[in-house]
Design a protein around this nucleic acid. Structure first.
Lengths: 190, 190
DNA sequence: CGGTCTCTTGACGGAGTTCAAAGCTAGTGG
DNA sequence: CCACTAGCTTTGAACTCCGTCAAGAGACCG
């Protein structure tokens, strides 16, 4: 049951079987199909989500109606609108399945109970949030460092298998370029 | 002693005087003058830094020799290269004082001891990392949403007093535009 | 198979960069 | 406390990366 989730926890903290059972009783498993939503803009983000299998993304729609993907979450990554979650404010983002996904939700309203009963989880989440921060810092560097063409080439060479899993328009919106320009870059390189 | 630091902790967790004394015995206060460094590219980041007073920034230098500022830390913010800190890998960034600053360093090699003796701090740092993540997500949205001109105008209207504290070339490098173009935008708006 | 997304192509335009050079400002040492 | 200098800011001209628009080809789903 949720092998990725359990293995991931145990890479950072130790939990015995009893504790794992307790934990599993307090989480909420969610399965979503392609294009279904975990969160929509305007709602308050009610949980932190662990991707057990599948692929999920975060995006927003600007005033011109154009989608901008800000984040992908593959297997073993956490995703949520952390501003909305921290402040109970309404979210500026959508979270949506790119592929059908099974997700573990840690719900806000059960968090206190969970952390009181399994204090090791404070440590686990601290480490996860720190790791996510590190990733965010590197991403900022990545985008600032290079031209859009270089961004594209780097990304494809770093994550060739991942690029196969997402439609081009979505990659374009993540890399901050238009589908037309991405198409042009692809033509040049083949 | 370190009023901002203590007050900030107590906004999120409770600590009695004895615990505060213990904490203060395990931190390392650092004062740096303008342009001095807390971290240089290539070093391993050895601490998480809380800005008690002053102003600090994170930046890197690309292959053309151009500086890119990725983050500012004002009073009451934490700053570190979290990838380097988590993995003990060498850093891709510099951390430098923009103004003379007094900083509280939580050193990696004392972290275990600190967290064992003051387990509430796990919670505090979890919340700080989550807050930083929320800020990072909003920043990505901010940059993706608008043109460079709009980024500039928004930033100035949101943080007019902060803009006074930093040189223009540094604001330009944070907003991902050239000093020449920033100068042009300033002229237009006055 | 029909219709609606997705991807490609090409022409055009403009936001933003590059380069060079000249003012300005602020910090430093004499 | 002044003078010098290095570095910051401004200006303007040329250029280019990349977005916009429009239209057609292809792909996928009901």
């Amino acid at each position: 049951m949720y092998p990725n989730f359990i293995a991931h926890l145990q890479r950072y903290i130790t939990l015995d079987n009893q504790e794992i059972d307790l934990l599993l009783s307090l989480i909420k498993p969610v399965t979503i199909r392609k294009k279904e939503f975990l969160l929509k803009e305007g709602q308050v983000c009610k949980a932190n989500y662990f991707v057990e299998t599948g692929l999920v993304r975060m995006f927003f729609i600007n005033e011109k109606g154009i989608e901008h993907t800000t984040q992908f979450a593959l297997e073993n990554w956490w995703i949520a609108d952390y501003m909305s979650l921290s402040n109970r404010s309404s979210s500026h983002f959508h979270i949506q399945a790119v592929e059908a996904a099974t997700v573990i939700a840690i719900e806000q309203h059960k968090e206190d109970q969970l952390l009181a009963q399994l204090p090791q989880l404070e440590r686990y989440f601290r480490l996860m949030m720190q790791r996510a921060n590190g990733a965010a810092q590197m991403r900022v560097k990545f985008f600032q460092d290079f031209s859009k063409e270089e961004n594209y080439r780097q990304f494809v060479s770093l994550f060739p298998q991942f690029v196969q899993r997402i439609p081009q328009y979505m990659l374009a919106s993540y890399l901050r370029l238009t589908p037309e320009y991405l198409s042009e870059l692809r033509k040049k390189s083949i």
